[in-house]
Amino acid sequence: PEDEKKAKEALKRANGDEDKAKEILRKLGVDPDRAEELLRRLR
Rank of each mutant, 00 (worst) to 15 (best):
K27D: 12
E23H: 06
A14H: 03
R26C: 07
E36K: 07
R26I: 15
E9A: 12
G16I: 01
R13F: 12
R43L: 14
E18V: 15
R13E: 14
K20N: 05
D17W: 04
R40D: 06
E37M: 08
K6R: 13
E37V: 08
E37H: 07
P1M: 14
A7S: 03
A21Q: 02
K6C: 09
K20F: 10
E18I: 15
K8N: 05
D31V: 04
G29W: 00
A35C: 06
E36D: 12
L38R: 01
R13T: 11
P32I: 10
P32N: 11
V30T: 03
K12I: 13
R26E: 12
R40N: 09
L38P: 00
A21T: 03
K6Y: 13
E2D: 14
G16S: 03
L25D: 00
L42D: 01
D31H: 12
E4I: 15
L39C: 03
L25R: 00
L11Y: 07
E37P: 01
L39E: 00
L11A: 02
P32H: 08
E4K: 07
L39Q: 00
G29E: 02
R34P: 02
K5W: 14
A10E: 02
K5H: 12
I24Y: 12
A7W: 04
E9V: 09
L38Q: 02
A21P: 00
A14Y: 04
K12D: 10
E37Y: 06
D3W: 15
A10P: 01
D17V: 05
R26Y: 12
R26Q: 13
R13Q: 15
L11Q: 02
E23K: 07
E2W: 12
E4T: 10
V30E: 02
R41P: 02
D33N: 11
R34Y: 14
I24M: 09
K5I: 13
K8V: 13
D19S: 13
K6S: 09
P32D: 11
L28R: 04
A21E: 01
G29S: 03
V30S: 01
A10Y: 02
K12H: 11
D17C: 07
L11S: 01
L42V: 07
A14M: 04
K22F: 14
D17M: 04
A21S: 02
E23T: 06
G29T: 01
R26W: 09
L39T: 01
L28A: 10
D19L: 14
L39V: 06
A14E: 02
D33K: 13
L28Y: 07
R43S: 07
P1S: 15
E36L: 08
R40H: 09
D3L: 14
P1K: 13
A21N: 00
D19R: 14
L25S: 00
D3H: 05
E18P: 12
E4P: 03
R40P: 01
P32Y: 09
K27R: 13
A10S: 04
E9N: 08
E23R: 09
E23L: 08
R34V: 14
L42R: 03
E4A: 09
E4R: 10
K20W: 09
K12A: 12
N15Q: 10
V30P: 00
K8D: 04
K8P: 02
E18K: 11
E18A: 11
G29V: 01
P32W: 09
K6E: 07
A14S: 08
G16E: 03
A7H: 02
L28I: 06
K27T: 13
K27A: 14
E2Y: 09
D31S: 13
E9F: 09
L28S: 07
R34H: 10
L38T: 03
K22T: 05
L42F: 08
A14P: 00
L11P: 00
R34S: 08
D19V: 15
A14W: 03
D31E: 11
D3Q: 07
R40W: 05
R41N: 10
E9S: 08
E9Q: 11
I24E: 07
L28G: 05
E37N: 06
K12W: 13
K8Y: 13
N15T: 03
L39M: 08
R43N: 06
E4Y: 15
A14D: 00
E37G: 05
L25H: 00
E2K: 07
K27G: 13
N15Y: 09
L28D: 07
P1F: 14
L38H: 02
D17A: 04
E23Y: 05
K8Q: 11
A10T: 02
K12E: 11
D31F: 05
K5A: 14
V30Q: 02
E36W: 06
R26N: 08
K22Q: 05
K27N: 13
K8T: 08
R43H: 06
L11D: 01
D3F: 09
L11W: 11
L39Y: 03
D31T: 11
R43I: 11
A7G: 04
D17K: 05
E2H: 09
R34M: 11
L38A: 04
D17Q: 05
E36M: 08
G29A: 03
R26G: 08
D19F: 12
E23F: 04
E4D: 07
R40I: 07
D33R: 13
R43M: 12
A21C: 04
E4N: 07
A10M: 02
A21D: 00
R43D: 04
D19Y: 12
K20I: 14
R13P: 01
D3K: 03
E36Y: 06
V30I: 15
R26D: 05
P1T: 14
A35Q: 02
E37Q: 10
K5L: 14
P1A: 14
A35W: 08
E23D: 10
D3S: 05
R41I: 08
L11R: 02
A10L: 03
E18M: 15
L28W: 15
R40Q: 09
R43T: 07
A35D: 00
K27H: 12
K27F: 10
A35R: 02
A21I: 03
G16Q: 04
L25I: 02
K27E: 14
L38N: 01
D3M: 12
E18W: 15
A35S: 05
